[in-house]
């Protein structure tokens, strides 16, 4: 699976025609022109993973931030029997109807063949169950090329977050290490995508502070000794008074 994902990186995505849930007709490139695009596949009649999967994407993108401002999501039906009304119903079921950040779309059979072929998205109609067997896929597209793809079955959750941030043009430099102490240098804030200085960095100022306090303290005491008994050799006075 991971080999599939790595194969997809940097692939060119065909610019197929789309019909959106509100009936508008346009091309895929119209969607990725302004912002990078997160593309995922579903079909309306799916009784399996499609709806929970889309819910997962919806929640994950909400958590990661930047949706709408840095990138948008396209949920594309891969069932050529789906109509604009069907995908509209799907959007409504997810509470995403009218969302400015999400598009739900259908396309024709030929275009579907092209895009699923280009992305190695696998699906097969099972007449016995009247369902389509398929895998789950999320593809990040920037400028018509695949930035990164996730295919269900071969990864871990942090990678979804990583994909989103990468699509937004930033990078997560930290992987969690189990049992790490709270004293790290900086933390990555998943909500803002920024690295912030942490307590560890604050701890780094401690030596300088200690030196400052030590210097001020020593010179303060030395000065007092000089003022109290200016007539004697102060260096010796300190030693005799302390030993």
């Amino acid at each position: 699976m991971s080999q599939l994902e790595s194969r997809l990186i940097d692939r060119t995505v065909p610019d197929i025609p789309l019909q959106l849930s509100d009936g508008r007709r346009l091309h895929l490139s119209d969607l990725w022109r302004e912002h990078p695009l997160l593309v995922t596949f579903f079909y309306r009649r799916c009784t399996g993973i499609c709806t929970p999967f889309l819910e997962g994407v919806r929640d994950a993108t909400r958590r990661s931030g930047g949706l709408g401002s840095d990138y948008r999501v396209l949920a594309l039906s891969f069932d050529d029997a789906d109509s604009a009304e069907d995908v509209r119903a799907q959007a409504a079921a997810l509470g995403l109807l009218g969302s400015p950040d999400w598009d739900f779309a259908v396309t024709d059979r030929e275009a579907l063949g092209r895009i699923t072929g280009a992305l190695d998205f696998w699906y097969r109609y099972d007449p016995a169950r009247r369902q389509i067997e398929h895998n789950a896929m999320i593809v990040g597209i920037d400028g018509g090329r695949v930035v990164r793809a996730l295919v269900a079955g071969g990864g871990e959750g942090g990678r979804m977050r990583e994909l989103v941030w990468e699509l937004r043009g930033s990078f997560i430099p930290i992987y969690a290490v189990p049992g790490q102490t709270p004293l790290s240098c900086f933390t990555f804030d998943a909500a803002t995508g920024e690295t912030r200085l942490d307590w560890g960095m604050l701890l780094l100022t401690l030596p300088a502070l200690a030196a400052l306090i030590a210097a001020l303290g020593v010179f303060y005491l030395g000065g007092r000794l000089r003022r109290v008994r200016p007539e004697i050799d102060t260096a010796k006075a300190w030693i005799t008074s302390h030993h």
Binding site: I49, A152, E156, G157
Partner: peptide
């Protein structure tokens, strides 16, 4: 079917799967 759903979701969104 639900089991598959759970597995797929766990793999995609869970922190780090076993």
């Amino acid at each position: 079917m639900h089991r598959i759903v759970a597995v797929v979701l766990a793999l995609l969104f869970a922190p780090v799967g076993p």
